[in-house]
Amino acid sequence: MNQLHAKENIIEKIKQGLNRSGKNDSSHEVGLQSIYFNVNDLESVDQFITENSLLGVQVYRCKNDNEFIEAFRNVSKSKAWKSVVCVNPGLKKRLGSPIIYDRGAMYSMDAVITECEYFVARTGTVVMSSAQPSGRVLPVYSPVHVIVGHENQMVNSISEALEDIKRQYLKEYPSALYFLTGVSSTGDIEKTLVKGVHGPKEVYIFLIED
């Protein structure tokens, strides 16, 4: 199969097809300003929390790192998580505790805890990437996903997040970007909502103010 041939052929057909009239560029003004109900900066954390509560995701707001660690330990204890995997070196150091293991324990883990790139207020989305040490497998394979981040990682919209990623990675985008909103679900069996199909069944988010 001649690859060059196929490519040339397709491009040529496109060009010819478009030459046959009707090629007017629309004068319609595209602009996102008035399309969604906009979130202003002061409301963004509240908006994020509200969205997530509608999605069944618990968000814990913590004043500082110590509060976060205590809150996390409490949740972990109440959920009886015996094995929580964390591969982020910085996070591991902060959490300390003997319940944290490495990647090798992934097949028997109760939960994984990761950081994230951004939070998106309007939709309650968590943005992650393959550039993070947690990679592609761990955050989707785990039955429970715990995310910890700072309020200054909050942006209002998806396009802002994409702009920030573009700047952050200087256009060398990570091989995978993930926009995670809520919990793995399906309605494929008679429209009955079931959670935790392939991805995590439960998600918890810790938002640190400082």
Binding site: E51, Y173, A176, L177, Y178, F179, T181, S184
Partner: peptide, 14 residues
């Protein structure tokens, strides 16, 4: 509002 998982893949792993 948006689907649960929206992923963007730009290539093989770095």
């Amino acid at each position: 509002k948006v689907t649960v998982y929206n992923s963007i893949f730009t290539g093989p792993k770095h």
